[in-house]
Design a protein around this nucleic acid. Sequence first.
DNA 1: CTGTATCCTGAAAGATACTG
DNA 2: CAGTATCTTTCAGGATACAG
Lengths: 126, 126
Amino acid sequence: MTQTALEPLPPDLFPADCPVESVPVLGGRKWAWKIMRCLESGPRRFSELRVPLVGITPKVLAESLRAMEQDGAVVRTEFDENPPRVEYALTPLGRTLLGPMDAMCAWSREHLGSLLAAREEYERAH
Amino acid sequence: MTQTALEPLPPDLFPADCPVESVPVLGGRKWAWKIMRCLESGPRRFSELRVPLVGITPKVLAESLRAMEQDGAVVRTEFDENPPRVEYALTPLGRTLLGPMDAMCAWSREHLGSLLAAREEYERAH
DNA sequence: CTGTATCCTGAAAGATACTG
DNA sequence: CAGTATCTTTCAGGATACAG
């Protein structure tokens, strides 16, 4: 039985507009994942979100929420009251992301131990 | 029927060492996701990986591979030949990540259209 | 071929102060 | 309350050259 050579990897393996790059919680946005989790349980106000997002500045929170709104994952609702009240909530589209996120979370719960062990092992060996 | 108030979000909702932050393909590493995909089909050499990873520099590829090796997702095998030959492959642990990654990819295939539409809609409205 | 060594850039994030 | 305005920092990533 002969060993079949592995197919070479083509230069165009990844299209220029590779879809996964655009997944809201996958890009550079450091806080997006946590924001999704904060909104999972229902609509939240700006100041309410600042509580669990320890260390986030209002600037960064506003930027992150706007980016997620642009992607259609979050909806911003402004109430005409005084004092002003604004609520952020997940859209139906945003909710569909929770499933794949749960899959990642399950992975990390299951394998984080192995990962940390690998890091220690690497340190000892180098 | 009275409206039950939403539970407030606690300040310690996210533990300091929140596990998902450590998932190899989720952190800052821009190329990790693609590298995983390149190794999915079998072991690959350094120069082989550079083909589909268009635009990556040797420095960044080396850094990325080392980080993934530290996390136990990739194994580096050096062959004592001349010219030198090194192969990178997914570890069993690394392979377990492919499932959750597939879930994200499926999401993006299914919902990328809605996302792009939301971006256009946002632009028109602002 | 498989990287390392330097230096540089840019974009997101953080600090701080202020406003409708 | 819900942000905006500035300024600074940081650090992954990129450019380029070179080495075992």
